[in-house]
Simulated assay, not measured.
Amino acid sequence: MVEWFLYVPQSRQGIDDLVAKARAAESAGFDGVALLDHLETPMAPASPIWEAMTAATWLAAKTERITLGHLVLCDAFRQPAVLAKQAVTLAEASGGRFELGLGSGSMPDELAKFGVSTASPRERVDALGRTLSALKRYWDADDEAAQIPTPSAPIPIVLGGVGPRMLNLVREHADWWNLPATYVDRLAEFIPQIGSAKASVQQMTGFVRRGDDAAATTEKAQRRFGHFGAGLVCGDAHALADHFRGLEAQGAQRFYVWFADFAPVDTIVEFGETVIRV
């Protein structure tokens, strides 16, 4: 059965708002919640944003069932041995409800601004590969490099991206591969390239709720996120259900739903009632 995650960037909102959205997602039938990982809000650096692992830990403490994760943690932000320890701690504290999403870093200007890294894209992907190999050793009780405690259950690895070198890492290391929203119309092209990893899709959604003016909702979503191209889909519950079924038929096994109205609780609840649970 397909899985549903709420993708909710933890920027421009309070911690209590994040908790309310996570709890609404849990009640509405979502399987998980995913955050992003940046030191400043993309394209809006003056807007506040909360640290990714801390926010996920807090949401895990405030929920009971949903899985917590990220699309995706930036490899360069965390030393691999420290990341391994953080992941095990959160996985154990949440009762196995944490997945480790990792990427090589999508905003090089941000990395340079905060003194994190000036590495090239190729160097960042190479570094991610080294991190993934190190995590396997840190989490393997039979390896001389193992950290104690090792995970009591496997921690799923989520990798995203469509470049050839990233796809090599997906095939070697990933339990889940995520297709970024801007490539949604190319899902069928990439599915054969991900090996045994399960496929997920990030989808920006202009949800026309009951009683909404469809044209106005669509216009606002297009104005905000039309640059996503096929990565933005607009429609009522029936149209969206058809759209997601089409992606599932192409091989998607999980959806990261990203709402163009920034996911107020009422939107989350109605989406659960009319799309997820139908």
Rank of each mutant, 00 (worst) to 15 (best):
Pro156Val: 13
Trp50Glu: 01
Pro151Ala: 08
Gly272Arg: 00
Ser27Asp: 06
Val19Lys: 07
Leu232Lys: 02
Ala81Lys: 11
Ala93Lys: 11
Phe207Met: 06
Leu90Met: 05
Phe98Ala: 11
Ile157Gln: 09
Gly226Ser: 12
Phe244Met: 07
Gln222Thr: 14
Ala34Gly: 08
Ile155Phe: 05
Ser47Lys: 08
Ala46Tyr: 00
Leu83Gly: 14
Thr89Met: 04
Thr57Gly: 02
Leu68Lys: 04
Met43Arg: 08
Trp176Arg: 04
Tyr256Ser: 11
Lys198Phe: 15
Glu110Ile: 02
Gln147Cys: 06
Ala214Val: 15
Ser117Gly: 01
Gly32Phe: 04
Met53Ile: 13
Thr118Glu: 11
Leu68Tyr: 01
Gly195Lys: 02
Ala46Lys: 13
Ala199Arg: 13
Asp31Trp: 02
Arg124Asp: 04
Arg97Val: 05
Val201Asn: 00
Glu3Gln: 13
Ile66Pro: 09
Phe271Arg: 03
Arg124Cys: 04
Asp140Val: 04
Ala112Thr: 15
Ser94Lys: 07
Ser106Asn: 09
Asp175His: 09
Gly195Pro: 08
Ala60Tyr: 10
Ala22Gly: 03
Leu132Gln: 03
Ile155Arg: 03
Ala55Gly: 05
Ile49Tyr: 15
Ala141Glu: 10
Thr57Asp: 04
Gly115Phe: 13
Arg245Ile: 05
Gln79Gly: 13
Arg65His: 14
Phe255His: 04
Asn178His: 01
Val82Asp: 08
Arg122Thr: 14
Leu90Glu: 11
Met53Val: 12
Ala197Pro: 10
Ala76Asp: 06
Lys62Cys: 14
His38Asp: 05
Gln203Ser: 11
Pro154Asn: 15
Ala22Asp: 05
Asp175Lys: 05
Asp75Arg: 05
Pro48Leu: 04
Ala22Pro: 01
Pro149Thr: 14
Ala216Trp: 15
Ala34His: 06
Val125Trp: 05
Gly235Val: 12
Leu36Lys: 07
Ala20Leu: 07
Gly163Ile: 01
Met53Asn: 11
Gln253Val: 13
Gly251Ala: 13
Gly160Leu: 05
Ala146Tyr: 07
Phe271Gln: 01
Val208Tyr: 02
Pro108Ala: 02
Leu240Met: 07
